[in-house]
Design a protein around this nucleic acid. Structure first.
Length: 258
DNA sequence: ATGGCAATGTTTCATTGA
């Protein structure tokens, strides 16, 4: 199974690129973030024509997550939101596909470490860690894939000195990320040797992409049974090139059959 | 082999993202 996560930064704008990418890469399951679409406007028909069923929860302007499932696979038990956390923001959706509980997550950005949005980010992450603890007990084969808005360590930061203490990199955010791992998940990217300076997000400004001034903030976390089946984990930097790219690149994981 | 913000709505700027 090929499992992907991609923050598309508006599915409305990115749909042509997404369709091209799906055709070129033939993933089985695709977790999307920042669709920025009300449910009534989700491009169900275009994705159906491309060979994918859509499961989604969205809102106008901000946030919005989805799970696309290739025709031939069946998705069951679709569930949106975080257990025990009342939230207007649409940031999490789950589905069971081929015996795997797949979660698409869009962790809050946090804006800056002294903002209310930062507090909300940490509270959201704490609630998700609790949610994951329950979910993994019910579904031992679990993958949570998404935009975590945390660079787990300095290898994931183009200029650690510049970013030290800033949002996306601060110690409490990294602790929140480790709390996800402590539930019994592995950062699939670090299961393998990786090219140095591999990132998943680059600012649109200041020539960040051509200079490779990026952060690795998009992750696929795997429970132990899935980590044991994982044969590859990489980031498709090419998807950040060209006309009207998302500022994020897709992360791709391959799982062999059990 | 890339390109100097982008997307959205409240639209002719403000807000948010990361």
């Amino acid at each position: 199974m090929k499992l992907v996560t991609w923050n598309v930064n508006s599915l409305n704008v990115r749909l042509p690129r997404l369709l091209d990418w799906l055709a070129a890469n033939a993933p089985d399951v695709v977790c999307l973030q920042e669709t920025k679409l009300e449910d009534a406007k989700f491009p169900v028909a275009a994705l159906e024509a491309a060979g994918y069923a859509s499961h989604y929860v969205g809102q106008k302007t901000y946030n919005g997550v989805a799970i696309l499932v290739r025709h031939g696979l069946v998705a069951t038990d679709i569930a949106a939101g975080v257990d025990g956390f009342v939230d207007e923001q649409k940031r999490l959706i789950a589905a069971t596909v081929a015996g795997i509980r797949v979660i698409s997550a869009y962790v809050p950005n946090g804006q800056s470490v002294d903002s209310d949005k930062y507090k909300y980010k940490l509270a959201w992450c704490a609630a998700v860690a609790d949610h994951l603890r329950e979910a993994i007990a019910a579904h031992p084969a679990l993958a949570i894939a998404g935009d975590f808005n945390v660079a787990p360590d300095d290898r994931d930061v183009h200029d650690p000195a510049l970013w030290a203490g800033q949002v996306l990199v601060s110690a409490p955010e990294r602790a929140a990320f480790r709390a996800f791992l402590d539930v019994g998940l592995a950062d699939s990217f670090r299961l393998f040797d990786q090219p140095p300076k591999t990132y998943s997000w680059w600012d649109y400004r200041m020539l960040a992409f051509p200079k490779n001034n990026g952060l690795r903030i998009d992750h696929v976390l795997l429970s132990a049974p899935l980590a044991a089946r994982c044969t590859a984990s990489r980031i498709d930097r090419n998807a950040r090139k060209g006309e009207k790219p998302s500022d994020h690149a897709p992360a791709i994981v391959e799982l062999r059959d059990p």
